[in-house]
């Protein structure tokens, strides 16, 4: 059962990420990327990482993709080029290079010793408890640093996007 759910989620993720990179309409790109994020969230939830599944939906599908949609709406982007149009040679070389990287990665993965199945991390409390504990004790510095980074990104985005008065 879990295997079938994983296969369906993986198929959805691959198909809709292809739609994301290949479709001409930017709104369709963003919405199909939302489906990819839902599929990945399903995989996270299935292997027992409930907190990750939740923030995948809240932060990615809820915040980042809405930001993308707002920018598309703001800039009024309609005409978008086809995938790899204009420069067929460079497009073919780029696709070939990317697929070569993928084949290399898959070959390395295939050499791994076949796993006996993964453990479902089950503490009886969900993972939010242990992640919150780790963030406030052992990983406090990176946690605070990410908040500084987010503040810097906020200020930087405001400075970049504001209208210059002259």
């Amino acid at each position: 059962m879990v295997t079938y759910v994983f296969l369906v989620a993986a198929l959805l993720a691959v198909v809709f990420s292809l739609v994301t990179i290949a479709h001409r309409s930017p709104v369709v790109n963003v919405l199909s990327l939302a489906i990819v994020f839902f599929a990945l969230s399903a995989i996270y939830a299935m292997v027992g990482m409930d907190f990750l599944a939740a923030i995948q939906l809240i932060v990615y599908a809820g915040a980042v993709l809405v930001l993308f949609l707002f920018v598309i709406m703001l800039l009024n982007i309609r005409s978008v080029e086809r995938l790899g149009s204009g420069r067929p040679l460079q497009a073919a070389l780029g696709a070939a290079a990317a697929i070569a990287i993928g084949v290399a990665i898959i070959l390395v993965i295939a050499r791994q010793s076949p796993s006996f199945g993964s453990l479902l991390p089950d503490t009886g409390k969900g993972t939010a408890y242990s992640i919150g504990r780790a963030l406030m004790t052992t990983h406090l510095f990176p946690f605070e640093f990410v908040s500084v980074l987010l503040l810097a990104a906020l200020v930087g985005a405001l400075v970049l996007a504001r209208k210059e008065e002259r």
């Binding site: 990420s17 299935m46 199945g117």
Partner: peptide
């Protein structure tokens, strides 16, 4: 903890496929 019947190599393979699609994009 209970075993789930998905080898981690499957998840890694899905990750590699998505990475290639993203690189092509």
């Amino acid at each position: 903890a209970t075993l789930i019947p998905i080898p981690y190599t499957w998840i890694l393979s899905l990750s590699a496929v998505l990475f290639v699609i993203g690189t092509i994009g």
